[in-house]
Design a protein around this nucleic acid. Structure first.
Lengths: 109, 109
DNA sequence: TCCATGATTCTATGATTATCGAAATATTGA
DNA sequence: TCAATATTTCGATAATCATAGAATCATGGA
């Protein structure tokens, strides 16, 4: 991963509402959650929520799919795993020190 | 870790200059690097560099020690490991999926 | 004590970001 | 087609952030 890729990912997570949204989606599993359900859980106004989902989506941390009137958002585990790998890169002067990539790879549900 | 703790850590890393600084310090190992050396490597003006180091330091991602006229900054591996643990928490609907915390714990140089 | 060097603080400026009300768009069922 | 519901876009506002020149502070050597 390039630094130019990592910065937008980190920026997307570096905001309380968005981190909460992301974690809610992570906890929800790969089925995802409709926008309205996220809003209910986190008490965020629709326009604000939409703004943050767009940010997360643009960063590649979440994906969406339409189902009838609902749009389901779900966490993209791969993006997070790549970010974690980037952050732990060179952590010991170039010596590999993590045998396996952290977290779920492949996603486990 | 609380979300209120994680956000400032992520925000500190979510900026190209700071992420570059942090990674330079990670690569430098626990001995750290004097401010001037960091500036040389990354081509950042002293005032700007000082601003970013303060941010990283305030977030707890780096520590500093004075040695004569020089101030050496070094990466705080523990803070990063705690952040990584937080980000991977609940990643599989609450099932633990990472046997050991990612990266160096304890730091290996 | 004075000077040179390393680093930080002050200050101003331009840019980006978060929030949310109101309006617009999209989909479904009647 | 029309009404109801779900979500997004628009627009305005307030707040935060990044940058760097100039001034200041701290340390060590002459």
């Amino acid at each position: 991963m390039e630094i130019k890729t990592a910065v937008p990912l980190l920026a997307a997570l570096a905001q309380e509402s968005r981190l909460a949204i992301y974690r809610t989606l992570v906890a929800a599993g790969s089925g995802g959650l409709a926008v309205g359900r996220i809003g209910e859980q986190l008490q965020v106004a629709p326009a604000t929520l939409s703004f943050h989902l767009k940010e997360l989506s643009h960063a590649g941390l979440v994906t969406s799919r339409q189902e009838g009137r609902f749009i389901y958002y779900s966490a993209n585990y791969t993006a997070m795993n790549e970010l974690l790998a980037y952050l732990t890169e060179n952590c010991c002067a170039g010596q590999p020190c993590t045998p396996a990539p952290p977290c779920c790879n492949p996603p486990c549900d």
